[in-house]
Amino acid sequence: MNFKLRLWRQKDRTSPGSFQEVEAHGISPDMSFLEMLDEVNNDMIRAGSEPVAFESDCREGICGTCSLVVEGLPHGPDKGTTVCQLFMRRFLDGQTISVEPWRAKAFPILKDLVADRAAFDDIIAAGGFISAKTGSAPDANGLPVPKKDADTAMDAAACIGCGACVAACPNASAMLFVAAKVSHLGHLPQGQPERERRVVRMVSKMDEAGFGNCSNRYECEAACPKEISVEHIARMNRDYGVSSLFGSERVRAEGGAG
């Protein structure tokens, strides 16, 4: 298969970027989108030009590193997949495909298709943890967790922190990511000690990072490769209101791990 690619090229954080038109020849329909880009990069290297920078790690849809906006859709047109699990047979032979990086003020572009998602790390450091005793692991059945809660927590824990929710949101809001983390730990007994502090501090850090506000358009849920539900956002909204206004401790927004 052959494709015409429009790749976003940007030298660094501060330089303005633009599209570069590149031809991709002899692509197998069974290649993933990233393998196709590898081929394009090989051609570029052979031709002596600078290859396009993009991120990837596991290439099996579980690590959350790959981050491309394909034809205006984060992770491409398929539902519930990351872009590394998007295959070229999904496209038409000869099709023009635009590839852009995640775009958000809180995710500055480092180079080409690579955006800096350190803001997510800061949010996790602010409250995405539990306090656990060191020593040997407790017995698995020692702490009863209702099946329903375990399932909901697992649904939220499926978040791989890729940032597609931010990329898809018309307001570049990080609500789905933060909600998934808050909801995941909030459903489990181990998450209860820090429950109030967690939601207040993570939301505060999210606001500080310059993400937009949620306007309930649900683009995040549709773009999420792990299909995390906006139900978690509602739960975070409840938790945040209750913890801020009626919490048993007066939580300061500052603080966190480390």
Partner: peptide, 20 residues
């Protein structure tokens, strides 16, 4: 205004999966 500021550079191609 904050929402606009949260994405200073717009996407060249914009599509939606939610179709809401």
């Amino acid at each position: 205004a904050e929402n606009r500021a949260a994405r200073p550079e717009r996407y060249a191609v914009k599509a939606s999966k939610a179709r809401s």
